[in-house]
């Protein structure tokens, strides 16, 4: 695929850069990387990072060092739906281990892997700030909270159905 923003994405890019003073456009780097990841299949290959560097008129290395520092930027391809399951203390004491085991079992994947149909990736993450609603996971922009095995089944079915419709 070509790593170039379409007109809508370019308009959003311009809106992001306009928040900062003249000459400080590098400040938009994190939001622009989010925009690029959403626009380019959920991950950021080197071509995408180079494209972002050219848009912001900064050196590619300035983009690489940021993209590798923050945990939300995927530098490898991921499935259509990424299950980011929290495993930190408060979720752990509320039963996240059994939820993680269950997801591994029903999707037949290990953390970091994607299902063969390309639909689901399992990622173990650290605290997402939903400790009172544990166990929980993030899928794209949304949080799925108070997870149980039944709820995991329902979430997987829901996404399978959504993927079939597209």
């Amino acid at each position: 695929m070509a790593y170039i923003f379409n007109d809508t994405q370019m308009a959003e890019f311009k809106r992001l850069v306009a928040r900062y003073p003249e000459g400080k456009q590098k400040s938009a780097l994190l939001p622009v990387l989010h925009l690029a990841q959403e626009s380019f299949d959920g991950w950021l290959p080197t071509e995408a990072l180079d494209y972002v560097a050219s848009l912001l008129q900064i050196e590619p290395i300035e983009v690489y060092e940021v993209a590798t520092f923050y945990s939300m930027y995927n530098l490898k391809p991921v499935g259509k739906y990424v299950f980011e399951v929290c495993q930190t203390g408060p979720c752990m004491i509320s039963g996240s281990d059994s939820i993680i085991d269950y997801i591994k079992q029903v999707l037949s994947i290990q953390p970091g892997e994607t299902t063969k149909d390309g639909l689901f990736t399992l990622k173990l993450v650290e605290c997402l700030g939903a400790c009172g609603y544990a166990p929980m996971m993030q899928v794209g922009k949304i949080y799925k909270e108070h997870l149980t095995k039944e709820k995991v089944d329902a979430i997987i079915a829901e996404f399978r159905q959504a993927a079939n419709k597209n």
Partner: peptide
């Protein structure tokens, strides 16, 4: 007031 999202880093 401008809102900026971080990238995932405690």
């Amino acid at each position: 007031i401008h809102v900026q999202r971080g990238g995932g880093a405690y």
